[in-house]
């Protein structure tokens, strides 16, 4: 398939135009000097780099217009390196452009496809030699080879098995238990309802038992946000309402979309916003999703107070926190 339409005639390669430096020795000399200047600038750059590395204190700052105060050592080394590299390149290119031969040459190109006869010969050879192996005829070998090749990938895959434990129920569990105190993050103080005014929030974690240490895996599942509203502002089911305490409501801070910390609470609109993908949750309606890609509300933690008046969890989370996974049942 090709375009058979008649074409204009190809005038052929344009005539070579000589550069000034080819004909005028003075111009060539000038170009040579320019190249030399560029290479010298590069050498000066290296000297600036060495000076900045050895003699400029790392805590010195200098004022550069537009950029403001800049670290002198970092800037000196960087600009030194820039000069030393950039001007070698500029010099080499200028040299190639102005002094090396600039005659464009034509190289022939041949079609990759071989001559018809050679190719037919080659194809025939491949067919013949392939047939000689008998793979096509000996179906027992073909099938058993297929089986072994199909299975061979399993061993390296299996070797990866010990990369980590099986998830089991880990994704569905947090450290919150009945009666676990809520403590502030990062200071670890227990909280009384009176500590929170209406419109106040607190970032909380479960209290550590003596001897326990808090790992990041725990924080990644346990982080909770405590918000106080006026009790009459809630639009909750009676069950969910019983999970709140005097207008204080607690949600998992781990986004049900992709696990970012949803800690961005707008006090006036009572919305929680995830800064990663902007899922927006409506706090009075049990963190119902009102915008963005999250598909589920944030899990609510049932809270109450203990005998000393500190806020505690009524019970563990009733659903897995964080992003969805295949085994999640709701």
């Amino acid at each position: 398939m090709s375009d058979k339409a008649p074409r204009l005639s190809d005038p052929g390669l344009p005539e070579h135009v000589h550069r000034k430096a080819d004909t005028d020795p003075a111009a060539a000399k000038k170009a040579e000097r320019q190249v030399a200047i560029l290479f010298t600038l590069s050498a000066l750059g290296t000297i600036l780099f060495i000076y900045s590395y050895i003699w400029v204190k790392t805590d010195r700052f200098i004022f550069i217009p537009i950029m403001g105060d800049q670290n002198a050592s970092q800037l000196g080394m960087g600009i030194g390196l820039t000069f030393s590299l950039l001007f070698i390149g500029m010099g080499a290119i200028h040299w190639a452009k102005s002094l090396m031969p600039d005659n464009e040459v034509a190289a022939e190109r041949h079609e990759f496809r071989s001559e018809e006869a050679d190719r037919a010969d080659f194809v025939a050879t491949v067919k013949e030699q392939g047939a000689a192996s008998g793979l096509g005829r000996r179906s027992l070998i073909k099938r058993s080879l297929g089986l072994s090749l199909g299975l061979i990938g399993l061993s390296p895959l299996l070797l990866l098995r010990d990369l980590g434990p099986l998830p089991k129920k880990s994704l569905e569990q947090t450290s919150w238990k009945t009666g676990t105190r809520l403590v502030t993050d990062p200071s670890g103080r227990p909280i009384k309802p009176s500590d929170l005014e209406v419109g106040a929030v607190a970032q909380v974690l479960p209290e550590l038992q003596p001897g326990q240490e808090r790992t990041l895996e725990n924080v990644g599942k346990d982080a909770v946000l405590l918000i106080r509203l006026r009790p009459e502002e809630f639009e909750l089911s009676p069950e969910r309402l019983s999970w709140t305490y005097q207008g204080i409501i607690a949600f998992s801070k781990i986004c049900t979309h992709m696990g970012c910390a949803v800690a961005l609470y707008e006090q006036q609109t009572k919305h929680l916003l995830c800064p990663c993908h902007q899922s927006t949750f409506d706090v009075p309606r049990a963190a119902k999703v009102i915008f963005g890609p999250a598909a589920r509300p944030l899990p609510q933690l049932a809270i109450t107070v203990d005998s000393e008046g500190y806020l505690v969890a009524q019970k563990p989370f009733t659903e897995p926190v964080g992003p969805s996974f295949w085994e999640r049942s709701s």
């Binding site: 950029m67 970092q74 800037l75 080394m77 960087g78 600009i79 390196l81 820039t82 000069f83 030393s84 590299l85 950039l86 001007f87 070698i88 390149g89 500029m90 080499a92 290119i93």
Partner: peptide, 14 residues
Amino acid sequence: FFIVFGISAFLGAV
């Protein structure tokens, strides 16, 4: 090559 390295260094510096 030196130019690309130089421009990277320039960005890294400023």
